[in-house]
């Protein structure tokens, strides 16, 4: 187990290093002189000099990286030249919204996918299974940006449900219920995408687990079907599910971007797209770095959860 942890940690640091180099290098993808691109042609020489100092542009590139990363490690992602605010501060303000959407959507997705998969696995190819299978397959082919547009069309516009339309975000501090309403459509949209993935994976794993001899053994003990499902079949079937959930987080963030963009919910996604449109490249860089590292760390944590769920894995 300890060896396993050590190996994973080395890999984690490797990946974080690659991400940091990639995010750092993004600035240099800009055509022309970074200072001009970031500040625009009309920038004053003082501002350019300040940017030169901040990015260390006079030094060779590896020194620039070194300066940059040592700032990043101390939580300093620079100051935006567009809004004149701290990039780290902007991210700290937006991040909780993304986390709230993701947590809500995952609660919804698991709460629906697990019972649905169990229902399907009880009678594979039965009518319920076929119906769930066909609908999940159809949902798989509807991109989140279409789901959210359609939901806005029917729920916010046609039905007029308050706080659900574009630009009607309410913060949790001012109105908790309104906040929940304003994040409901984004959460449901992300939940639908996750549901499809979780349902399909858990269903097929449950079906194969239910054919195991230890399930027949559990039956022969006189346990109820519900108990067999939850305490015998579910746990050994949930390894791939957790793996998918870990990987899914990255996709969820991206889908979240789209949803926030449409509804003008000031999370990381909306902030990112606005920053891109305003050429606020330092903010874009900061968000990309934060999100990427976040995704990798979450994946890493899921690896551990999987290990705890199935003790066979680290022993192998």
């Amino acid at each position: 187990m300890l060896r396993y942890v050590a190996k994973r940690l080395v890999l984690l640091f490797g990946i974080v290093f690659v991400i940091s180099v990639g995010s750092f290098y993004l600035i240099h993808l800009l055509p022309g002189n970074p200072a001009t691109v970031i500040l625009g042609f009309g920038a004053s020489p003082e501002a350019k000099a300040a940017l030169y100092r901040q990015l260390g542009l006079a030094h060779p590139i590896y020194l620039q990286y070194f300066t940059w990363i040592s700032n990043v490690v101390r939580g300093n992602l620079g100051t935006s030249f567009i809004s004149q605010t701290s990039v780290a501060g902007t991210i700290r303000a937006a991040l909780p919204i993304d986390l709230e959407i993701i947590v809500l959507s995952q609660i919804l997705a698991f709460a629906t996918a697990i019972p649905a998969a169990m229902r399907s696995a009880k009678r594979p190819d039965g009518p319920v299974d076929r119906l769930l299978g066909a609908s999940s397959f159809t949902l798989l082919s509807i991109p989140p940006f279409i789901i959210i547009v359609l939901m806005v069309l029917f729920i916010s516009i046609k039905l007029g449900v308050p706080h659900t339309g574009p630009s009607s975000y309410v913060s949790f501090a001012s109105d908790p219920l309104g906040n929940l309403a304003s994040l409901s459509l984004p959460s449901i949209t992300l939940a639908i995408g996750s549901f499809v993935v979780y349902y399909r994976i858990l269903r097929s794993d449950l079906i194969s687990t239910l054919q195991e001899e230890f399930i027949t053994m559990a039956r022969s003990k006189g346990l109820s079907q519900r108990r067999i499902m939850w305490s015998h079949a579910f746990r050994p079937s949930s390894v791939a599910l957790l793996g998918a959930a870990g990987v899914n987080i990255g996709g969820l963030l991206a889908a979240g971007f789209v949803v926030q963009y449409l509804l003008a919910i000031p999370g990381l996604g909306y902030t990112l797209i606005t920053a891109i449109n305003m050429s606020d490249f330092l903010l874009v860089q900061g968000i990309v770095l934060t999100v990427s590292v976040g995704v990798v760390v979450i994946n890493f944590l899921f690896d551990f959860i999987i290990n705890m769920v199935d003790p066979r894995i680290s022993r192998e």
Binding site: F214, G222, S224, P236
Partner: peptide
């Protein structure tokens, strides 16, 4: 189910597969 376990019980063939590996 009412007689399974209490009236009649079974010992399965292969102890490698008849025990739940994660319990």
């Amino acid at each position: 189910r009412k007689i399974w376990g209490t009236e009649v019980a079974m010992i399965f063939q292969d102890p490698m597969t008849s025990l739940n590996p994660v319990m």
